[in-house]
Computed example of a mutant assay.
Amino acid sequence: MSPEVLIALITAVSVLGAAVVAAVPALLALQRRTRGAVEADGAATRAATLDALDAVGARIEAKFDAHIGDLRDDVDDVRESVARVREWQAGHDAEHLLITRPRSGGDA
């Protein structure tokens, strides 16, 4: 490894190390402030969050209940369509059986 590359690597590691050392006190102070804020407002924040989640759940359930009837109607329509197709298919298969059936009493 050339000396220039080695010097560049040492310089880069030194700069990163200095940045980390300088950032640690600021990060610790930020952590102390946020921990105190969360502990002070924890119960109120938790209650507000649970209330908001209950409201969202109620809205989702209302929308689901509003659309479940439509969904059931659509499923019934699909079932009826499938039944009609199966009936037609059974009749069509019977026609083919009758058409391809060998006739007796021929030129055997």
Rank of each mutant, 00 (worst) to 15 (best):
M1N: 13
S2P: 01
E4T: 02
V5Y: 13
L6F: 03
I7C: 09
A8K: 12
L9P: 06
T11A: 04
T11P: 04
A12P: 07
V13M: 07
S14A: 15
L16F: 05
G17F: 14
A18G: 04
A18Q: 02
A18H: 01
A18M: 00
A19C: 01
A19G: 02
A19H: 03
A19D: 02
A19W: 03
V20P: 01
V20N: 04
V20R: 04
V21Q: 12
A22D: 08
A22L: 08
A23Y: 05
A23P: 00
V24I: 07
P25R: 02
P25W: 02
L28A: 07
A29W: 02
L30T: 10
L30I: 09
Q31A: 08
R32P: 02
R32V: 05
R32D: 07
R33V: 15
T34N: 10
T34W: 10
R35K: 13
R35G: 06
G36P: 03
G36H: 00
E39I: 05
A40Q: 11
A40I: 08
D41V: 01
G42M: 05
A43V: 14
T45H: 02
A47Q: 13
A48K: 09
L50Q: 11
L50P: 00
L50N: 08
L53G: 02
D54N: 11
D54R: 09
D54G: 10
A55F: 10
A55W: 06
A55Y: 09
G57D: 02
G57S: 00
A58Y: 06
I60N: 11
E61D: 07
E61G: 03
A62I: 03
A62G: 03
K63I: 10
K63V: 11
K63D: 15
F64R: 14
F64Y: 15
D65R: 15
A66D: 14
H67K: 15
G69W: 03
G69P: 04
G69L: 02
L71Q: 15
L71K: 11
L71R: 09
R72K: 10
D74A: 13
D74F: 13
D74G: 13
D76P: 05
D77R: 12
V78Y: 14
R79M: 09
R79P: 00
E80G: 12
S81H: 14
S81F: 10
V82N: 05
V82G: 01
A83V: 03
A83D: 04
R84M: 08
R84A: 14
V85H: 07
R86V: 00
E87P: 04
W88H: 12
Q89N: 05
G91V: 00
H92W: 01
H92S: 02
H92Y: 04
D93I: 08
D93V: 08
A94S: 01
A94F: 01
E95V: 01
E95R: 11
H96C: 08
L97K: 05
L97A: 08
L97S: 10
L98V: 05
R101D: 05
R101W: 05
R103C: 12
R103Q: 12
S104T: 06
S104D: 12
G105P: 03
G106N: 00
G106M: 02
D107A: 12
